[in-house]
Amino acid sequence: MERAVAIEVNRLSKAYGAHQAVSDLSFHVYAGEIFGLLGPNGAGKSTTLRTLITLLHPTSGTASIFGHDTVREADTVRRLIGYVPQERAIDRFLTGREHLQLLGALYHLTKEEAAGRINELLKLVDLEAHADRPAKTYSGGMKRKLDIACGLLPDPKILFLDEPTLGLDVQSRLRIWEYVRMLKARGMTVVMTTNYLDEADQLCDRLAIIDGGRIKALGSPTELKVALGGDIVSLTIKEMDRIPGLEAALANQPAIKTVRATGNGLDIRVESPEKALPVILETANRLGCGIEFIDYHRPRLDDVFIAHTGRRITDTAETPVE
């Protein structure tokens, strides 16, 4: 089956002076999917996004939106997209409605067209009651909703969201996720950056893991997890000094794929737990390692992230509590 391609990124690089923000990225986004750019802060997600929405010119390589080049045909691209910036891009002195009216004029809607669409959007994001209050009286969640309404005002083919739930409370986050799913159901293509693994896992149809300006892995969350191969056994060990010994002893066992030392134990990727668990326990016993805690789970997205980048996403970014 041939799927329509919404975004095509080809060998994209962006450098700021000597600093290479993004190197040689190639990927595409299908029409109608939710595509995620997952990575820690400073990984190059925002640079990639801003290139796609025509705000940055690539140093080399190209990006196109429905076949239109983001540099040469910037104006056409801008007519196809909506953007929800990462910062609270709100003018505190304007009311919610005035924000949308301003954008209406910038997208060249007539007053009547704009008024109708604005009412619809205010209803959608649940801001009708607050539409005529200055934005400085809005809560963080309300500002975010206004941001999203602004992004949707042009009725875009593709909506770009930069860290849509950064710093939001749990309820607002779930609310935003709901909107995003609803937009997808209406046939919109959504591209978002995030450094929240659970967000990427639950929301995105496909995602690219970006670290150090490069794509480390790309696929659906399930594909990425399956591709890791095998399940994960995590051990917490009392005798910290014996961890390296156990690591070495397990590394060459047949049922075990990889062993990785963590702060207080080992993460072991295993072919089949039925065969591996006895081996692990027996070896630990033989080396005199007291196992304090043992956890066995199917690969999660954070395991995927660690496998591809060699570190936890939380090493540089914080994850909110669920």
Binding site: R50, I53, L55, R78, Y83, E87, A89, L103
Partner: peptide, 13 residues
């Protein structure tokens, strides 16, 4: 600084 300019610049103006 607050990103409003980016919002304006991503519009077809």
């Amino acid at each position: 600084e607050n990103g409003f300019l980016e919002r304006l610049m991503s519009a077809p103006i």
